[in-house]
């Protein structure tokens, strides 16, 4: 007996956001990235169209990061040189975007000045042709200064700036509006705050197609199912024409997956867990692939071996034919 597929038709779609600007568009990028635009639940090809494939933003920090050796070793000697590091991510590992974290600005750490941070951004912009995501050091006060300087230094480049949060979104939104950038709106695994923050940012005058949602996530084994369900609700909201939830989503996979003990403890310490290098790759890969299924459009990733696997997964998902 033939089985009829039950197909859902949705009245709306995820909004599209364009990142980066080429020379004709007033920037210096050699290519731009478009995310969002889908009118279906993730990869259910028989219900709609995957308009833009998900992309990978590889993580680069302005100072040498405190990561484990299994990851660091894959980058060789570029970790103290953000421009060279970004180049390696694009040329060798095929990153679609660079996610530059200015952790050196942290007042408790290197306390780098906004000007120094802006200089690093310019160096990375000069070194690669892909669009940039730039976030601060997660100290609200300092980030407001740093990101204002970054927004100005990167004027015309159509950056994705973060992080705007419910109690600190005004400065970054203003900076993005003045210099025509996009903003990451981060909410703490909370769909209601997620929607409210989008409303507040939009009320300041930043158009909805300049906002990307960071729903916050948990890595594999650390609450990923909460992230999954929040993202699913946002996606369903977008498809049901809730304009205040219709933005594409970015997930900080590399950061969350590599915070876990499972991605860092050696095989000597936990013989049952197996080789760390392989385990770390799988931990990040599985976090990423699960969140792709929940509707992630941009994945922040760290481990080049995991990036390779997820690139293959994305290609398979996007090209998948519907089974007969």
């Amino acid at each position: 007996m033939p089985v009829t597929l039950v197909k859902e038709r949705f009245p709306s779609k995820v909004g599209e956001v364009i990142l980066g600007a080429t020379s004709e568009q007033g920037g210096t990028r050699t290519s731009t990235v478009v995310v969002g635009g889908d009118n279906l639940l993730p990869f259910l090809h028989f219900e709609g169209k995957v308009v833009n494939r998900p992309v990978i933003a590889m993580e680069v920090t302005d100072i040498v990061p405190p990561w484990n050796e299994a990851i660091k070793a894959q980058f060789g000697d570029v970790l103290d040189n953000p421009a060279a590091w970004a180049q390696k991510c694009v040329n060798e590992f095929g990153a679609d975007l660079i996610y530059l974290k200015l952790i050196g600005a942290d007042p408790e750490g290197f306390n780098r000045s906004p000007e120094d941070c802006a200089r690093v951004v310019k160096e990375v912009l000069a070194a690669v042709g892909v669009p940039l995501v730039v976030v601060g050091c997660e100290n609200a006060e300092k980030d407001n200064e740093v990101l204002a300087a970054v927004a100005e230094a990167g004027a015309g480049e159509n950056l994705l700036l973060g992080l705007a949060e419910q109690d600190n979104y005004k400065s970054i939104t203003a900076a993005a509006m003045v210099h025509k950038h996009n903003v990451i709106a981060r909410s703490p695994l909370d769909i209601n705050i997620c929607k409210q923050l989008n409303i507040l940012i939009n009320e300041m005058g930043l158009p909805l197609n300049r906002i990307v949602i960071d729903p916050m996530i948990g890595g594999l084994g650390f609450g990923i199912e909460y992230a999954y369900s929040i993202m699913e609700r946002a996606r369903l909201g977008a498809l049901a024409n809730d304009k205040m939830l219709s933005m594409p989503m970015i997930c900080t996979v590399g950061y969350e997956a590599n915070r876990s003990k499972e991605a860092n403890a050696s095989a000597e310490e936990f013989p049952g867990w197996g080789d760390l290098a392989q385990r770390g790759v799988l931990w990040e890969t599985l976090t990423a692939t699960a969140l792709l299924q929940a509707g992630a459009s941009i994945l922040l990733m760290r481990n080049p071996e995991a990036v390779k696997l997820v690139q293959r997964n994305i290609a398979d998902l996007v090209d998948a034919e519907v089974g007969a």
């Binding site: 769909i191 209601n192 705050i193 929607k195 409210q196 409303i199 507040l200 009320e203 609700r233 909201g237 049901a240 809730d242 304009k243 205040m244 939830l245």
Partner: peptide, 14 residues
């Protein structure tokens, strides 16, 4: 049927 946000009344009309 729609997701709560503090400003839900305002966006219902937008």
């Amino acid at each position: 049927k729609s997701i709560y946000a503090d400003s839900y009344l305002k966006v219902f009309r937008a």
